[in-house]
């Protein structure tokens, strides 16, 4: 009956006709919008594959010329076209290690203070201050390291531009990341668990050590690895203070270089050919390492999120 009635009106009035047209127009715009949204989401995958592909293609000449010895060779001599990544890799690992050694304990300490000790009135301002500091661009940290920390360390330790200074600046830079992630992770501990421990007579430290940290271990490690990913790939903060000397030295107070600093300093003036390609290979190396570190970090944080959600 209803169908019949609709057909009848459809045949009779032009209004219904235009309504059908409007409906099909809606249907079209619906399909277009959905397709655009899907396409945009795919650009994320496109960017990742574009980054990896362009770096691989860029580094083919180097890989062909040196193979794996590129990773172990220490010489970096553009006029002779001799390139090796070992000093850059060494510098990246050492500066990041120094940064983590300093920033992880301090960052976790700040998080403990914020979640367990801080008077409620201070909690918000200190938390906000830390988050704002996490947003300050790295070139500012680099400049500060160069103009303030460098002369200071020069007078105290006798060497200003060094792997150690770079590690120190990196530590200050990743500190806000570690604190704010660890604080968020600590906040996922159910109050019931903490209160039960306090009810059994635990001291604050015992609650932290036996309840909070075991409960959030995965998340803390995830947060630390996220910070490590940043430290490994950080460019400007390091380039200013690392000294840019292409050598491996066991003395942390000697100048050195990192993968990102080498690229930043030399790519602009590099001759096309093996020189450029070697820098591309360094970029590829950096991307692969940070990709692995960041993937682990995300997987761990996701595991914690899922548990907190369940």
């Amino acid at each position: 009956m209803v169908d019949l009635a609709m057909q009848a009106t459809h045949a009779e009035t032009p209004a219904a006709d235009s309504r059908l047209k409007a409906l099909s127009r809606f249907k079209l715009s619906d399909a277009v919008f959905g397709a655009l949204a899907r396409l945009s989401a795919m650009t994320v995958l496109l960017i990742l594959s574009g980054v990896i592909l362009s770096l691989i293609i860029g580094s083919l000449p180097t890989l062909r010329a040196y193979g794996f010895s590129f990773l172990t060779s220490q010489s970096w001599n553009p006029p002779l076209e001799k390139f090796g990544a070992a000093p850059s890799i060494y510098g990246t690992l050492v500066t990041s290690a120094i940064a983590m050694l300093i920033a992880v304990p301090v960052g976790i300490g700040v998080a403990i203070f914020l979640t367990e000790l801080c008077p409620p009135a201070l909690r918000r301002p200190v938390g906000i201050a830390i988050e704002l500091l996490a947003g300050i661009p790295s070139i500012i940290y680099g400049m500060w390291g160069f103009f303030v920390l460098n002369p200071f360390l020069q007078s105290v330790l006798g060497s200003g531009l060094s792997l150690f200074t770079a590690g120190l600046v990196l530590a200050i830079m990743v500190l806000p990341f570690i604190s704010s992630i660890t604080r968020d992770v600590f906040d996922t501990v159910p109050p019931m668990l903490k209160e039960s421990a306090y009810g059994l007579g635990c001291t604050r430290w015992e609650v932290i050590k036996n309840v909070i940290i075991p409960f959030t271990r995965v998340g803390i490690i995830g947060g630390v690895m996220l910070a490590l990913g940043r430290a490994l790939g950080e460019t400007m903060a390091v380039t200013f203070v690392v000294g840019n000397a292409n050598r491996i030295s066991a003395n942390l107070l000697d100048p050195g270089t990192t993968i990102s600093a080498t690229i930043a300093n030399q790519f602009g003036e590099a001759e096309p050919g093996l020189y450029t390609s070697s820098l591309m290979t360094l970029g590829l190396l950096l991307f692969l390492v940070t990709f692995v570190v960041l993937s682990c970090a995300r997987l761990m944080l996701m595991r914690l999120e899922r548990r907190a959600g369940a």
């Binding site: 994320v44 790939g233 460019t235 990102s260 690229i263 930043a264 790519f267 970029g283 990709f291």
Partner: peptide, 27 residues
């Protein structure tokens, strides 16, 4: 597919920006 996109996006979020520079240089 969505969880893959989300995961990759989270990685791009903290990927070293100098690598992005190299990528755009190439293209």
């Amino acid at each position: 597919l969505a969880s893959v996109v989300r995961f990759i996006n989270d990685i791009l979020l903290s990927a070293p920006s100098i690598v992005i520079g190299l990528f755009i240089y190439t293209v």
